[in-house]
């Protein structure tokens, strides 16, 4: 069978939306994710009501409609694939993490409830994958880059946007795997592989949209305080790229010992030495061959570690900037 054709079919039919329909997740998986999602949403509601004024009620409603509408804006990438927006990172960057989560949750609720785009019993999982995970990653932007120069902010937002799509796809794949709907060895590399490509569209649109807003209404996305030195900003870019590579490499490489690789990738030298595009030609291979689950889990753990480190460094920098 023609793998390229299969990948293409996958991209065009299944992947552009990760909305899982009812029936594809087992009852325990669906219910567990409902519980997690409800808990996070209740927290988000509480935080939003504490932090934001009454002006936010129409704002969040219109923004949810905006994300839904913006998902229709697409652009051709290559070979019939088109890039489009999921919007979680953009929402979190513009509205903050909690409001961003609520807005994304509403988008997915409406898609499932009114348009049957995603099921009702699996809605908890869908909200989690496409709304909460993406908005949470988007909120890293505020910790990492909000005080940096324009270029740094854009790159960080773009990388986070790419990462959010890949992370959403990873969770979707893991849920399908745990439900016994599709074997991990197939669904995880397939979903990740394709979404690494799809995520590029997300990253580019998010960057361009943010750049547009920075240019037209700089007051909305102003750097939050005194700008720190450019050198420090690019350290953050380096960290975010490390995060990017950490997720990318264990999956894209056929190397079985993923943890070691992630450990190496976390170093900056490795980042400098490994141009990301070299990793791409290999990404289809796991689709055919065996990819042990351990590799993927290693990748996830690695990514989480890097995210934590990056977040800690971001905080540290922010505190130092505040002290200065």
């Amino acid at each position: 069978m023609n793998i390229a054709l299969l990948t293409r079919l996958w991209e065009e039919v299944v992947v552009p939306r990760m909305h899982i329909p009812d029936g594809f997740l087992s009852m325990p998986v669906a219910l567990i994710f409902w519980v997690i999602t409800v808990a996070l949403l209740l927290l988000a509601i509480r935080k939003t009501q504490q932090q934001l004024g009454e002006r936010q009620i129409p704002l969040m409603g219109v923004m949810a409609a905006f994300i839904f509408a913006a998902q229709m804006i697409n652009f051709p990438i290559a070979g019939g694939t088109s890039g489009h927006l999921l919007g979680g990172v953009l929402a979190a960057v513009m509205l903050g993490p909690w409001a961003g989560m609520l807005v994304m949750a509403c988008v997915i609720i409406v898609q499932g409830l009114l348009f049957q785009d995603g099921g009702l019993l699996v809605m908890g999982a869908n909200i989690f994958n496409m709304g909460l995970v993406t908005a949470a990653l988007g909120s890293l932007y505020h910790g990492l880059a909000a005080r940096q120069s324009k270029g740094v902010r854009l790159v960080v937002a773009g990388v986070l946007a790419w990462l959010s799509v890949v992370a959403g796809a990873l969770f979707t794949a893991l849920q399908l795997g745990f439900s016994g709907t599709s074997p991990f060895a197939i669904v995880v590399p397939a979903m990740l592989g394709v979404h690494m490509l799809i995520g590029i569209g997300e990253g580019l649109i998010t960057m361009a949209a943010l750049a547009f807003v920075m240019q037209v209404r700089p007051d909305l996305v102003a750097a939050e305080a005194v700008r720190t030195g450019g050198g420090r900003g690019w350290v953050i870019v380096g960290l975010v790229i490390a995060l990017f590579v950490a997720v990318l490499s264990p999956i894209a490489s056929a190397d079985p010992d993923g943890l070691e690789r992630v450990a190496i990738d976390m170093g900056f030298e490795e980042v400098a030495m490994t141009p990301p595009y070299e990793l791409f030609p290999d990404y289809v291979i796991p689709f055919l061959g065996e990819t042990p689950l351990s590799t993927i889990l290693a990748g996830v753990i690695g990514a989480l570690v890097v995210a934590l480190v990056a977040f800690a460094v971001g905080r540290l920098l922010r505190q130092r900037a505040a002290a200065a």
């Binding site: 913006a70 804006i73 652009f75 489009h84 649109i205 960057m207 949209a209 750049a211």
Partner: peptide
């Protein structure tokens, strides 16, 4: 991508 991003920003 920039055109699409501009449209998104505009919206």
């Amino acid at each position: 991508a920039r055109v699409a991003g501009n449209m998104t920003g505009q919206l």
